[in-house]
Design a protein around this nucleic acid. Structure first.
Length: 469
RNA sequence: GGUGGAAUGGCCGAGAGGCGAGGCAAGGGACUGCAAAUCCCUCUACACGGGUUCAAAUCCCGUUUCCACCUCCA
C-alpha cells in the first residue's frame, strides 16, 4: 500500500506525511470568524479538510482535529452595532449558522472546537511569555505588539521580504517600534468588551488566539495546520511568529485550500446572498453540494456557476441511483471497500478528481452488471463506490444524510400507493393500452415521481425540481 | 513594486518527458410499445514564440492574458 503524500505550503512541494508521533495525526484548522452567514467558500474549506481528516482516519491515524471559532474581532463588534445586538449574541447567531451548514454537508464535528473567548487566559499567558522572552512589548497605551524584525523566520511561509511589503494604510507608528509589528493585544475602546490584563483592559488581537488554542489542544508542535489561501499572510505568518517566538515548534506542515470563485474572481460581499449555503440548499441537497465542493482538487480554484452545481448534482444522483438499485438487488447495503486506484489517488495529495475517474469506471461496470444480473460484479462495484463515497463524506447511506425526521410509516404508505398505481400501469401495458399507461406515467412525473422500467419491474423515485423554486 | 497561482477539446476538469484520465454536452447505435434509465461507438486538446531531446501538454528561456496576497478575508 502506498503511503500518504501531502503538499506543504512552506516547502512548496509534495512529500510523504510522517507524523510527529507514529500512528497519530494532529491538525489545526482556522475556522470561521463568525460575523456573517457562511457562503460556500467558507464551507469548501470545511469540506476539503474534512476529506483530509476522513482519509487520515481511514489510513489508520488516530487523528485529533481542532477547528476554532473566532467569536471576538473588529467585524463582529461592528456587526453588533449594526444589528443593535450584543456582540456575543451576534457571534453565537453566526456560529450556529456555520454549525448548521457543516452539519448539512456532513462535515464531522471537530475533536474539539474551541472559541477564542474561552481562551483569553491562555492568550494572556502566551503574551506574558512573549514579553518575558523579549519578543513583545507593551508600550503603555494598552496595546501589546510583537517585534517582528527580531525573528529570522518571519515571512518564510509567504516567501516575502519584510521591506517589500506595501505599507499599511492605517499604520500608526506612535507606539510601534516598527510599522510591521502587529498587535497581540488591543486596548479597549469605549464600549468594547474587554478583559483585564497586566497591560490594561483590552481584547485579543486577531492572530494570538490561534497560537494559544493550538498550544492548548495540540501542544508545542503538531502535524498539520490548515486554512484558506488568503490566510497565509498575514494570519499564518503571524501565528508562526508568535508561536516560534514563544519557543514552540508549531506546525510541521501547512495546507491551504483554494477558493470558490465566481466569474473568475474571489467571492466577496458584493455578490450578495446568492452563494450562501442556505440559499444553495434550496436547489440541491446537502450531499450534492458537498459532492460539488469536494470534487475539485483542494488546491485548485473552483469556479462556481449554477449550471456547474446542477451538473455535478445530476452526476451524483446517477451514482446514488446505482447504489440504491444495487442495494435492492443484493438485498442489503453494500459493504464499503477501497479500491487500489482510489487509495493511490487519495495518497497522492488527496487527488480527488483522479479518484472520481475511478468511481466513474466502477459505475459503468456496476450498471453493466445490473443489465447482466451478475450479482458478484454488482456487489464489487457497489462496495468500491460506497467505500470511496464514504471517504469523501458523500455516502448516501450515512445516517447524517438520511433525514431522520421522516416518518417511516408515511414512507411505507407512499410506497404502497405508488406501487398500486404502477400495478395499474403494468396492467394497462399488458393489455397494450398505452394511452392509459402513459397517462399514469405522465401523471406521476407531474407529481415529481419518475419511473424507470427495469428488468426487475418498474421502479419509482422522487425527482427533485430543478433550479430555483 | 514584492510574492504566489493559472491558461488543456463545445463546456468542466485531471495529468507532468513516450502508452491521449474522467465527466457533461453533441451525434450515431443497442434496449423499449414510446419514453426514462442503462450500455456501446464517435468527436481528441494542451495560451503564444523560441530552445533542449530520438520523443515536450509535461523540461528550459522569453512573451501575452487572467487571478490572488501584501495587516478584514475560507
Amino acid at each position: 500500500m502506498s503511503s500518504l503524500k501531502l503538499y506543504d505550503t512552506l516547502s512548496r512541494t509534495v512529500s510523504e506525511f510522517i507524523p510527529l508521533q507514529p500512528g497519530k495525526a494532529s491538525i489545526y484548522l482556522c475556522g470561521a470568524t463568525v460575523q456573517a452567514p457562511p457562503h460556500i467558500g467558507h464551507i469548501r474549506s470545511g469540506v476539503n479538510f474534512d476529506i483530509l481528516r476522513r482519509w487520515l482516519i481511514k489510513s489508520g491515524f488516530d487523528t485529533t482535529f481542532i477547528r476554532n471559532v473566532t467569536d471576538i474581532d473588529d467585524k463582529i463588534l461592528h456587526k453588533a452595532v449594526h444589528e443593535k445586538a450584543p456582540w456575543w449574541a451576534v457571534a453565537l447567531k453566526y456560529e450556529r449558522a456555520f454549525t448548521d451548514a457543516y452539519t448539512a454537508l456532513n462535515v464531522l464535528p471537530p475533536t474539539y472546537e474551541p472559541r477564542a473567548t474561552g481562551h483569553i487566559t491562555q492568550m494572556i499567558e502566551l503574551i506574558a511569555s512573549l514579553i518575558e522572552r523579549g519578543h513583545a512589548y507593551a508600550p503603555g497605551n494598552g496595546d501589546v505588539y510583537l517585534e517582528v524584525r527580531k525573528l529570522d523566520s518571519y515571512l518564510t511561509l509567504s516567501n516575502q521580504n519584510i521591506d517589500d511589503l506595501l505599507p499599511a494604510q492605517d499604520a500608526d507608528e506612535t507606539f510601534k517600534r516598527d510599522v510591521r509589528d502587529f498587535a497581540l493585544w488591543k486596548a479597549a475602546k469605549a464600549g468594547d468588551p474587554f478583559w483585564p490584563t497586566p497591560w490594561g483592559n483590552g481584547r485579543p488581537g486577531w492572530h494570538i488566539e490561534c497560537s494559544a488554542m493550538a498550544f492548548a489542544y495540540l501542544g508545542a508542535e503538531f502535524d498539520i495546520h490548515g486554512g484558506g489561501l488568503d490566510l497565509i499572510f498575514p494570519h499564518h505568518e503571524n501565528e508562526i511568529a508568535q508561536s516560534e517566538a514563544a519557543g514552540y515548534g508549531f506546525a510541521k506542515r501547512w495546507l491551504h485550500n483554494a477558493w470558490v470563485t465566481a466569474s473568475g474572481e474571489k467571492m466577496s460581499k458584493s455578490l450578495g446572498n446568492s452563494l450562501q449555503v442556505t440559499e444553495l440548499l434550496k436547489s440541491v441537497r446537502g450531499i450534492e453540494l458537498r459532492w460539488y465542493l469536494g470534487s475539485a482538487h483542494y488546491r485548485s480554484m473552483l469556479e462556481f456557476s449554477p449550471a456547474a452545481l446542477e451538473e455535478s448534482a445530476v452526476g451524483f444522483r446517477r451514482i446514488e441511483n446505482f447504489l440504491l438499485r444495487a442495494t435492492k438487488i443484493l438485498g442489503s447495503q453494500p459493504e464499503p471497500l477501497l479500491s487500489a486506484d482510489f487509495v493511490a489517488a487519495m495518497n497522492e495529495d488527496l487527488a480527488v478528481p483522479q479518484a472520481l475517474a475511478g468511481i466513474s469506471e466502477q459505475l459503468r461496470l456496476g450498471n453493466s452488471a445490473i443489465t447482466e444480473n451478475d450479482k458478484v460484479a454488482i456487489a464489487s462495484a457497489a462496495s468500491h463506490i460506497r467505500g470511496a463515497l464514504e471517504v469523501l463524506g458523500c455516502d448516501p447511506f450515512d445516517p447524517a444524510f438520511v433525514g431522520g425526521a421522516q416518518d417511516e410509516s408515511l414512507t411505507e404508505a407512499l410506497d404502497g400507493v405508488i406501487n398500486l398505481v404502477l400495478a395499474q400501469r403494468t396492467a394497462a401495458r399488458d393489455r397494450k393500452d398505452f394511452a392509459a399507461s402513459d397517462q399514469i406515467r405522465d401523471g406521476l412525473i407531474a407529481l415529481g415521481i419518475s419511473i424507470e422500467d427495469t428488468a426487475q419491474g418498474p421502479r419509482w423515485s422522487i425527482s427533485r425540481s430543478e433550479g430555483s423554486n
